[in-house]
């Protein structure tokens, strides 16, 4: 299996995860979407020095991983390309903010290090929450829920079509790469001199495809309004789940659970 085929396989794996059955998968998409948005909003709202207060926010994704039956390692494996980028956020903070903030075993830790770790943790938590949403909700249901939240139709359509066609374009890229390697044996990757024509070809193919696709939509009566899947209506159970989640997030935001717990052991 070459790299492209592997990428394609990984992409389709998300559908398999979303098609599983668990108490979380069974919730209405709107409940999952709202709770995820609330979670991300609360995580982002923590101050850059509130590292210890942020740690208990891990509780929610851990619970979801348990209840949905999705392995944590799958999450980190799938996010392996994005995670380093997220980790890189705030990497320079220790150089700008050198004032000591706390001491760990006699070693002074600067505010810059704390803020860097906070930013990293925020990024990881937000990614985990987004992954869990995608892994427990089929994309069409997610788009339908986004439209119900009045997210602009154009954006939702873009998301839907991108998800549908990223695989198709990867397939095209795989074919082009294979054709290249068959005529360039022993060469690792694609030579820099071919990058321009490679991207140009891909762009042309994408444009051709986009035109055909638009024609196909128009021929079936498309006039700037997309119809999405009927998602099941929210039940009292979904409402209770959403409210409980939001209450938990607010509690963890307003009460520094880590300090409280720590206070039990340290004076």
């Amino acid at each position: 299996m070459n790299k492209m085929e592997k990428a394609l396989y990984e992409l389709t794996e998300m559908d398999d995860l979303a098609a599983r059955s668990s108490p979380i998968h069974g919730l209405c998409p709107m409940a999952k979407l709202l709770s995820t948005i609330a979670y991300i909003a609360v995580v982002v709202s923590f101050h850059k020095y509130e590292l210890s207060a942020l740690v208990p926010m891990l509780l929610w994704p851990v619970l979801l991983f348990q209840l949905s039956g999705i392995p944590v390692r799958t999450c980190f494996y799938k996010l392996r390309i994005v995670l380093p980028l997220v980790m890189a956020v705030g990497l320079f903070n220790p150089f700008f903010d050198r004032a000591p903030m706390l001491a760990l075993g006699g070693v002074a830790v600067s505010g810059g290090v704390v803020s860097m770790l906070t930013l990293m943790l925020k990024g990881v938590l937000c990614l985990m929450a987004s992954f869990l949403l995608m892994a427990t909700t089929p994309i069409d249901h997610l788009c339908a829920a986004l439209r119900r939240l009045h997210v602009p139709g154009m954006l939702v359509t873009l998301l839907l079509l991108t998800y549908r066609y990223v695989g198709v374009m990867t397939e095209e890229l795989a074919v082009m790469t294979e054709a290249y390697h068959l005529r360039a044996p022993g060469q690792k990757g694609i030579h820099v001199s071919a990058w321009g024509s490679f991207l140009g070809q891909l762009l042309l193919r994408s444009m051709d495809r986009a035109e055909e696709l638009y024609n196909s939509m128009q021929l079936r009566g498309y006039h700037e309004h997309f119809h999405y899947a009927d998602i099941k209506p929210c039940t009292p159970r979904d409402a209770v789940y959403t409210l409980c989640c939001i209450a938990l997030f607010l509690l963890l935001r307003l009460v520094d659970a880590a300090s409280l717990l720590g206070g039990l052991f340290v004076r």
């Binding site: 089929p138 994309i139 069409d140 839907l160 079509l161 998800y163 549908r164 066609y165 198709v168 495809r209 055909e212 696709l213 196909s216 939509m217 021929l219 079936r220 009566g221 498309y222 006039h223 309004h225 119809h227 999405y228 899947a229």
Partner: peptide, 26 residues
């Protein structure tokens, strides 16, 4: 009704069902 040569260009919705309802609903 037009059936395109490349079905990937015709089936632009995530699932078969959604593709089938696209035209009639429009």
């Amino acid at each position: 009704g037009f059936v395109l040569q490349n079905s990937d260009n015709q089936m632009f919705m995530p699932t078969v069902y959604e593709d089938m309802i696209f035209g009639p609903l429009n």
